[in-house]
């Protein structure tokens, strides 16, 4: 095990504990795409927790920056247009597919949800295939 694997494992354990707090306290799945989407068509009394969750996500980044500045360096060189298309695909795809890496990949897999198994295998396989294609097309500059 090299240090990066150990860090990944430690980070994963923290994420596992974090989603457990959400379940124990609020009885909810920590599905980040869904939590964000709920802010786009807000229902009364259902927005504050979503907003504070997102604020926590950003503040955690601010807090960690001095300790691990390299975690905030994006060395993938692509055009702004490519990044915009990536964002559109992630936004549209996660809502059509009812979840992302957190909701399906962590929470759903942990409770052995068949839908989350299918979703997780599908988005990882699609990602692997897409990297092969994007490398051929020279998308990563």
């Amino acid at each position: 095990m090299n240090q990066e694997w150990i860090n990944a494992l430690i980070g994963g354990v923290i994420i596992g504990l974090s989603v457990s707090i959400m379940l124990l306290m609020n009885g909810r799945v920590t599905g980040i795409s869904g939590i964000i989407d709920g802010l786009l068509g807000p229902t009364k009394g259902d927005s504050l927790w979503r907003l504070l969750f997102v604020a926590g996500l950003v503040l955690g980044g601010v807090f960690m920056m001095p300790f691990k500045p390299e975690a905030f360096v994006n060395t993938v060189s692509t055009s702004d247009l490519t990044v915009a298309i990536a964002g559109l695909l992630v936004g549209f795809g996660t809502i059509l597919g009812s979840g992302c890496t957190s909701g399906h990949g962590v929470c759903g897999m942990s409770r052995l949800s068949p839908r989350s198994f299918v979703a997780t295998i599908t988005f990882i396989a699609a990602g692997v295939a897409a990297v092969v294609l994007f490398k051929k097309l020279g998308v990563y500059l």
Binding site: I32, S33, I36, V54, L57, V58, G60, G61, N74, V76, T78, T82, V83, I85, A86, G87, L88, L89, V90, G91, F92, G93, T94, I95, L96, G97, S98, C100, T101, S102, H104, R115, V118, A119, T120, T122, F123, I124, A125, A126, G127, V128, A129, A130, V131, F134, V139
Partner: peptide
Amino acid sequence: SLVVGSLLFGAGWALGGFCPGPAIT
């Protein structure tokens, strides 16, 4: 929808290297 959505998400994830949580952070 579950499958098509996940396919699109996977492609976007590979293209930008971000899924929703890490992008916000």
